[in-house]
């Protein structure tokens, strides 16, 4: 872990921004909500989830090591399983176990 003060401030920042986003509507928009904010609230979640997937994969190298093969296999498993069963816990658990087995035993 990094030092305690830096960690505490980081958590305070993340908690503060989250709280702000959740409380703001009740403070500011109790009468009327600005259109651009309404619009962003509807479309941003879709773009952000894609961004987060790429964020998780940012350190994967396609040119060296295991060439991203374990990641691809596990992601396909999660996607197919989720499309089929729609069970968040099943998808996450299976994907993670599959990935851990792959990098610990297959692509060592």
């Amino acid at each position: 872990m990094i030092d305690t003060t830096h960690s505490l401030i980081l958590i305070a920042v993340m908690a503060g921004v989250t709280m702000l986003l959740r409380l703001l509507p009740f403070v500011l928009f109790s009468k009327r909500t600005p259109k651009p904010i309404l619009y962003l609230g509807t479309v941003l979640p879709y773009s952000v989830m894609a961004m987060l997937v790429i964020y998780c994969l940012r350190n994967v190298s396609l040119l060296s090591g295991s060439r991203g093969i374990p990641e691809i296999i596990a992601i396909v498993l999660v996607a197919v399983l989720h499309k089929w069963k729609h069970n968040m816990l099943l998808s996450i658990l299976s994907g993670t176990i599959c990935y851990m087995l792959l990098i610990q035993f297959v692509f060592v």
């Binding site: 979640p45 879709y46 989830m49 894609a50 987060l52 997937v53 998780c56 994969l57 990641e71 596990a74 992601i75 999660v78 996607a79 989720h82 499309k83 729609h86 968040m88 998808s91 996450i92 994907g95 993670t96 990935y99 851990m100 792959l102 990098i103 610990q104």
Partner: peptide, 24 residues
């Protein structure tokens, strides 16, 4: 051996992505 446990985060986002893809 917790190597690879970070993938739970990727898996979480991939499954939400699939969920959203079907909804919208």
């Amino acid at each position: 051996n917790s190597a690879g446990i970070d993938f739970s985060m990727t898996a979480l986002f991939v499954s939400i992505f699939v969920e959203q893809w079907e909804k919208n």
